[in-house]
Write a protein that binds this DNA or RNA. Structure first.
Lengths: 338, 338
DNA sequence: GCCAGAATTGACAACGTTGTCCAGACGTTA
DNA sequence: TAACGTCTGGACAACGTTGTCAATTCTGGC
């Protein structure tokens, strides 16, 4: 009744190749050959081994295999938040490419915290992933130097690596932002606000730069109260938007720096009588069904992921080129809100 | 120039504990002790070892560690589609619980294909994950029996396991669907259509059952042309919806069986002059901003994930209870479209 | 019936780590 | 000074697999 044997025996020991070999009455290596589909095994022997395998429920231990072979056939993906819909298609695209190459995907969220990013990345390296796709949270990635030197293929996505030379795949944040703001200007707006992410995030800075460039090209002044970079927490975005929309000379249009900001801004604007134009960076589901449809600058997140993962596997397949920087175009989708 | 040495030397060999030991002038086991923070090392020795570690860029090889220790400190999550926004919060919740337990998360999509699910699950087992969280695509999971017997903790989420006895965490699909349809009936609807997922998917069947129960309880007949189970591909959903809305006695309300269906239905209805009531299973972002706001039956996806992962780690910590089935409540959120 | 050569099979070491166990060094006490 | 205990450090085996290489069996041709 109260004996603890049951809980200690919960874990049956798994059969090994040795067990299979013993049961099938063959040598260890023969089992290995069968398991790996190597040639040089008689059909009869193979059948005996297969029977033993199913009888015992044997499953090869990949940890041991990895130890022996050096490659793990797995790659790591570190992004900011697994729950952010923007990263869903990217995540999936990376997974698909990995799958095509017979690799598994290990992933985790950095929560935009550089320390956590590093912790996660190094944990992945300790697992000896073959490669890494990283959406960086931090700005200094020198901690990766020994890993890269040891052969861990590494590709950064969405934001460049800090302080090291590595492959990067980006969206054209600057160009996209400039297009967005130019679009608003073309529709007659002169006082345009920008609400973006924290200034330590590269894309936020680039989008701000695009905003300023468009204003500048149109000869429009930028009142510094029209620019708000900071957390994308709803409360902050809400108060920033409300501040820009208050006062004697409020902005008549807003450019929001990413999907999270856009969603909050849409909510703020929904409660207002007077129409305010809006263009958002990042497309999102149902943007066309809100009234008016939300005009956006769309990035192709799936393509970002696909490009990054392909680059990664090119490296793993031995490509020996200097680090590349790929910039993917964005696309302005006018829907009415601009 | 054309020598291939460069590409073959791309992968520097990684330093091992032996290398560190040699450099620090200590024994192998002492390095192991330092790396694992075990007691019994003089501060001076520890310092020498640490120096050697940083100098060489040593990182413990977890594959070897796993081989020796038996546990991998990683769990697998198999879901249907990494890009589906419904699974984002679930994915993240599982990751957070894993992180709290010092485990990494390996995940992959089954694409609703039982064969692919099995392939993925067995690959994870070969990696010797400590546990599995599975959103099942298939209906027969007997292939997992040897794994579970060998101690791989396994929890099914969102849908029950097939043909085996295992932990399951579900949302109350039946109750939620019944509430949704009852809500429509309370608003005066008599002809209500249901568009759901494929009938081999458990939740689809349960939601249909809830639909029928609500109609039945209200004494309303169900015309079989009002029920459409099948793929959630937009074209099929669109034609199903249009069929129900055509003819002499069209439905006046629709109940959509999951978020993908809802989104497509919303698009169909947006093109129609006459208002059609709609309640959707699953909440989604911005459902409140569409006009009219979409009434939904919300599941708490994050809680599903948290519950499942907690159950998993309880098992890994030795809990020796019979398999459990947990059913989480759903919540009707009226927003106007109903 | 015998031999060369090919095909099949198995013994053994190695991958990098951790657990076990023992050897020295050092300090304390009688 | 001897006896004893404590603390630190290291030698060695083992985890389960795969690569190497040698041993064994089989085949066909004479």
């Amino acid at each position: 009744m109260t004996d603890t044997a049951r809980s200690t025996t919960r874990y049956g020991t798994r059969p090994t190749m040795k067990d299979v070999a013993a049961r099938a009455g063959v040598g260890l290596k023969t089992v290995s050959r069968v398991v790996n589909g190597e040639p040089g095994v008689t059909p009869d022997t193979e059948r005996r081994v297969q029977e033993a395998i199913t009888a015992l429920g044997f499953r090869r231990n990949d940890s041991a295999r990895v130890l022996r072979k050096g490659r793990t056939a797995s790659i790591g993906l570190v992004l900011e938040d697994l729950a952010d819909p923007f990263y869903g298609p990217l995540n999936r695209a990376v997974e698909e490419v990995a799958r095509d190459h017979g690799a598994l995907l290990i992933n985790g969220s950095s929560a935009e915290d550089p320390a956590r990013e590093q912790e996660l990345v190094l944990a992945l390296c300790a697992r000896r992933v073959d490669g890494l796709v990283i959406i960086p949270a931090g700005t200094d990635h020198r901690y990766l130097e020994p890993e890269i030197a040891a052969g861990v293929a590494t590709v950064f996505v969405d934001r460049p690596a800090g302080e090291i030379d590595a492959d990067v795949v980006l969206s054209d944040s600057f160009g996209g932002a400039r297009d967005a703001v130019a679009h608003l200007i073309a529709h007659g707006h002169r006082r345009i606000g920008f609400i973006g992410d924290q200034p330590r995030i590269h894309t936020a800075v680039e989008r701000l730069r695009g905003y300023r460039a468009a204003m500048d090209e149109a000869g429009l002044p930028v009142d510094e109260s029209w620019v708000a970079l900071g957390s994308t927490a709803p409360e902050r975005v809400r108060s920033a938007a409300e501040a820009m929309l208050a006062g004697p000379a409020p902005v008549t249009a807003l450019f929001s720096g990413n999907n999270r900001v856009t969603v909050t801004v849409v909510r703020v604007l929904a409660g207002r009588p007077r129409p305010v134009a809006l263009v958002g960076f990042d497309d999102f589901e149902l943007a066309d069904l809100i009234d008016p449809g939300i005009t956006v600058v769309a990035q192709d997140a799936a393509r970002l992921g696909r490009t990054a993962a392909s680059l990664l596997f090119r490296r793993l397949d031995g490509a020996d080129e200097p680090p590349q920087q790929r910039v993917l175009p964005t696309r302005l989708i006018p829907r009415g809100s601009g």
